[in-house]
C-alpha cells in the first residue's frame, strides 16, 4: 500500500517545528515513531500536506531526574523507557503497561509521546478509503451518523493507549509548548472525551515533557486481549497504590480513559469503584469482543489488579 503525496520535513528544534507547522496552515502532522500515524495516512484517514519529524530535536529523548520528579522526553521509545531503573522501582504499574504494549519490535519504534497521543480506534473506522466510502463516512470521518450506533450524536471510538492510564495513576503531567509559550496540565486533561477529536491539544502544540512525581508506588496493569502480543487492549486497567489510597484508570473502552480514586483501600471501597467503573463503561460493538463482555471485564480486571498488588506488589 503506497502513501499519498506529502512533504517531509525534519525539525532540529521545537521552534523550527512550530514554525513549519504554521507555515503549512495547520495541515501538518508531527511524526515520532510513526507506528500509529503512518497506518492512518496509508488508509487515507489523514491527508497531510507535510509531515514534521520531531526525532531530530535534541532533548526530547532524555530522561532526567529534576528535583523530585522524573522528566521524560516524549521521543524516548517504549522499550528504552522500560529499561529505566526508576520505572521498574517506582512505578510498577507503568512498567507493566509498557511491557504489555503491542510487541517488542513496535516497542522499539513507538515513543511514549506518540503512545499517549495515539488516535482512537473503531472497527468501522480503521479501514481503507474504499471500504469507508462504501460504508458511508461516520462521525469521526466528518459524516452525519455513527456507523456503530446509528442514532448517536457522539463518537464511541476507543482510546487504546496502554500507558496514559498508568501515567495518570501516578499523577503525571504533560508540558506542552506552542508559539504562545508553554503550559503544563495533568495528563487526564489532555483527553477531550470526544472520539472525533480525542485530545485537548491545540493545533500545533507539541508535547515537550512528561513529568512524573518521583514517589515509590505499588501498582499493576491488567490488560484484556485475545492474543498475547501485538493487540491493543479491549479493556485495560491501571492501578497504583500509594499508602492507603489508590488511583484506578480504565482504558480501551470509549474515547478517553476513566479515572477513579480510592481514599482508603478496603474490600468495600474496591468493590465500589469496580461497580462504579462498570456503570461508567459504555462499550459498543466496535472492537472484536462483544460490548457487554468488555463491560463485565472492567470490574473483574480492577479486582484482579488489586489482588495482585496485595499479593506482593506489581510483579
Amino acid at each position: 500500500m503506497i502513501l499519498p503525496k506529502f512533504d517531509y520535513k525534519k525539525a532540529r528544534t521545537i521552534e523550527e517545528a512550530l514554525e513549519l507547522y504554521n507555515k503549512h496552515d495547520g495541515n501538518a502532522f508531527y511524526l515520532a515513531g510513526g507506528t500509529d500515524l503512518v497506518p492512518l495516512i496509508k488508509l487515507r484517514l489523514l491527508q497531510p500536506k507535510v509531515i514534521i519529524d520531531l526525532k531530530g530535536i535534541d532533548g526530547l529523548k532524555d530522561i532526567k531526574k529534576i528535583n523530585n520528579s522524573l522528566v521524560v522526553g516524549p521521543n524516548i521509545t517504549l522499550f528504552e523507557l522500560k529499561q529505566n531503573p526508576f520505572i521498574k522501582d517506582y512505578f510498577p504499574c507503568l512498567f507493566e503497561s509498557l511491557e504489555a504494549t503491542s510487541c517488542k519490535t513496535l516497542q522499539m519504534r513507538g515513543t511514549i509521546g506518540g503512545n499517549i497521543l495515539q488516535n482512537t480506534r473503531c472497527l468501522q473506522y480503521n479501514k481503507s478509503l474504499e471500504w469507508r466510502t462504501a460504508r458511508g463516512f461516520c462521525l469521526k470521518m466528518g459524516g452525519k451518523v455513527c456507523n456503530v450506533v446509528p442514532n448517536s450524536k457522539s463518537c464511541f471510538s476507543n482510546y487504546c493507549g496502554d500507558n496514559a492510564p498508568s501515567l495518570m495513576t501516578i499523577d503525571a503531567k504533560a508540558k506542552l509548548v506552542s508559539a504562545k509559550g508553554e503550559r503544563t496540565v495533568r495528563l487526564e486533561k489532555l483527553f477531550s472525551e470526544d472520539g472525533r477529536s480525542p485530545f485537548t491539544i491545540k493545533p500545533g502544540e507539541i508535547l515537550k515533557e512528561i513529568i512524573i512525581p518521583l514517589k515509590k508506588t505499588k501498582g499493576a496493569y491488567e490488560k484484556l486481549t485475545v492474543r498475547g502480543s501485538i493487540d491493543y487492549p479491549l479493556v485495560g486497567v491501571a492501578v497504583t497504590v500509594k499508602k492507603d489510597a489508590a488511583v484506578v484508570a480504565v482504558t480501551g473502552i470509549g474515547p478517553s480513559p476513566h479515572l477513579y480514586e480510592i481514599k482508603e483501600i478496603n474490600e468495600k471501597s474496591i468493590n465500589e469503584v469496580a461497580d462504579w467503573a462498570y456503570e461508567d463503561a459504555r462499550p459498543v460493538l466496535n472492537a472484536v469482543l462483544t460490548p457487554l463482555y468488555r463491560k463485565k471485564m472492567v470490574p473483574v480486571l480492577i479486582k484482579r489488579a488489586f489482588k495482585r498488588i496485595g499479593a506482593g506488589g506489581g510483579r
Binding site: 510487541c103 472497527l123 471500504w131 485475545v226 492474543r227 498475547g228 502480543s229 501485538i230 493487540d231
Partner: peptide
Amino acid sequence: FLLNPDLLEYKVPLAC
C-alpha cells in the same frame, strides 16, 4: 462489510 480484514483484528495466533 467484513470488519476484520486485516492482521491486527483478525487473530492469527502468535508464538506466545
